[in-house]
Simulated scan of single mutants.
Amino acid sequence: MLNMIKRAAMDANEASVPVGITFGTVVNDNPLEVTVDQRFILDEDFLIIPESLTKYEIDLKHSHTIIGVGGTATALGDKVIIRTGLEKGDKVILLRVQGGQQYLVLDKVVGA
Rank of each mutant, 00 (worst) to 15 (best):
F40G: 01
T65W: 15
R7A: 06
T84D: 11
I82S: 05
A15N: 10
P31Y: 04
S16V: 12
L86C: 02
K108R: 12
D90E: 02
E33A: 15
T84C: 08
T25I: 09
R83V: 09
A9I: 13
V69C: 00
L76C: 03
G70Q: 03
I5F: 04
E57S: 05
T65I: 15
H62V: 00
L104C: 04
R83W: 07
A8E: 09
F23N: 12
D11Q: 13
G89E: 04
E57P: 00
A12I: 05
K6N: 13
D43K: 09
Y56K: 09
D107G: 14
V97R: 05
L53P: 07
V110F: 11
V26M: 00
Y103D: 00
L95T: 02
I66Y: 06
N28G: 14
Q101T: 02
A9W: 08
G89S: 00
I66K: 13
S16F: 13
T54C: 11
D78V: 12
S63K: 02
V110H: 04
R39Y: 08
L76P: 00
A9V: 14
H64N: 08
H64A: 04
L104D: 08
V105P: 01
H64K: 06
L47P: 03
M4N: 10
E44I: 10
D37P: 00
N13M: 15
I58E: 10
P18V: 12
E57Y: 00
L47M: 05
D45V: 04
V110Y: 07
V97L: 09
P50C: 03
I67N: 08
I93N: 07
Q38R: 13
P18E: 15
K108V: 12
I48Q: 10
G85V: 02
I66R: 10
A75E: 11
I41H: 01
F46L: 08
V36F: 02
G24M: 03
L106A: 10
I48C: 10
L95D: 07
I5H: 06
D43N: 11
N30M: 04
L42S: 02
A75T: 14
K91N: 10
I48S: 12
G89Y: 01
T54E: 15
V80W: 02
V17C: 04
R96A: 15
E14D: 12
H62Q: 07
V105L: 06
L86S: 02
L94I: 11
E33Q: 14
K79E: 05
K55N: 06
A8K: 06
G71P: 01
G99S: 02
G68A: 06
G20P: 07
R96W: 05
L106S: 11
E87K: 12
E14V: 06
T74W: 06
Q101H: 13
G89M: 04
A75H: 10
M1E: 11
E14G: 01
P31N: 02
P31A: 03
K55H: 13
V109D: 06
K91V: 05
D45G: 01
D78I: 08
D78Y: 03
T35S: 11
N3S: 14
L32G: 02
L94D: 08
E57M: 03
I82R: 07
T35I: 11
G20H: 07
D11H: 08
S16G: 01
D37T: 13
